[in-house]
Computed example of a mutant assay.
Amino acid sequence: MSTDFQSARVALGARLRELRAEAGENGKDFAARLGWQRSKVSRLENGKQTATADDLTAWAAAAGVPEQAADLASRLRGLESQQRSWRRQLTAGNRPVQDRYVVEYQQTATMRGYEATVIPGLFQTPDYARHLFAKNAVVMQSPRDTEAAVAARMRRQEVLYEAGKLFRVLLWEGALHALVCPREVMAGQLDRLVGLIGMSTVELGIVPLGAPLELTPKHGFWIFDEERVIVETINTELSFDSPDDLALYGRVWDALNAAAGYGAQAHRLIARARHLIAPA
Rank of each mutant, 00 (worst) to 15 (best):
M1E: 07
S2W: 04
T3M: 07
D4H: 05
D4I: 04
Q6G: 02
Q6H: 12
S7C: 10
V10H: 07
L16Y: 05
R17Y: 11
E18R: 09
L19F: 09
G24F: 08
A31Q: 07
R33W: 05
W36Y: 06
Q37L: 08
V41Y: 11
V41F: 12
R43S: 08
R43Y: 12
N46K: 15
Q49R: 10
Q49G: 01
T52N: 14
A53M: 08
W59C: 00
A61I: 12
A61K: 14
A63I: 03
G64N: 06
Q68I: 06
A70T: 14
A70E: 15
S81D: 14
S81L: 08
Q82W: 10
Q82E: 13
S85M: 13
R88C: 07
Q89M: 15
V97D: 05
Q98H: 14
D99N: 14
R100P: 00
R100E: 15
V103L: 13
T108W: 13
T108N: 11
T110M: 12
M111G: 01
T117F: 08
T117Y: 10
V118W: 10
V118D: 04
P120N: 13
G121P: 02
L122N: 01
F123Q: 01
P126Q: 14
P126E: 13
P126N: 09
D127I: 09
A137Y: 09
V138C: 04
V139L: 14
P143F: 12
D145C: 15
T146M: 08
E147Y: 08
A149F: 07
V150L: 07
A152C: 11
R153T: 03
M154R: 12
M154I: 15
M154C: 08
M154Y: 07
R155P: 00
R156D: 05
R156A: 01
Q157V: 04
Q157N: 10
V159I: 13
L160N: 06
Y161A: 12
Y161G: 05
K165E: 06
L166H: 15
E173K: 03
G174I: 03
A175G: 03
L179F: 06
C181F: 02
C181A: 15
C181H: 00
P182I: 05
E184H: 11
M186I: 04
M186G: 00
M186F: 05
Q189I: 00
D191P: 01
R192E: 14
L193C: 03
V194T: 10
T201E: 04
V202L: 07
V202G: 02
E203D: 10
L204F: 02
L204W: 01
P208C: 08
P212C: 04
L213G: 00
E214Q: 14
T216K: 06
K218M: 10
K218C: 08
G220A: 09
W222M: 12
I223P: 00
D225V: 05
D225S: 06
R228K: 13
E232Y: 04
L238N: 06
D241F: 13
D241I: 04
S242E: 14
P243R: 11
D244W: 10
L248W: 12
Y249T: 02
W253Q: 02
W253D: 02
D254G: 05
A255G: 03
A255P: 00
L256V: 00
L256R: 01
A260Q: 01
A260T: 01
Y262M: 14
G263I: 13
A266R: 00
L276Y: 06
L276W: 07
P279D: 09
P279L: 11
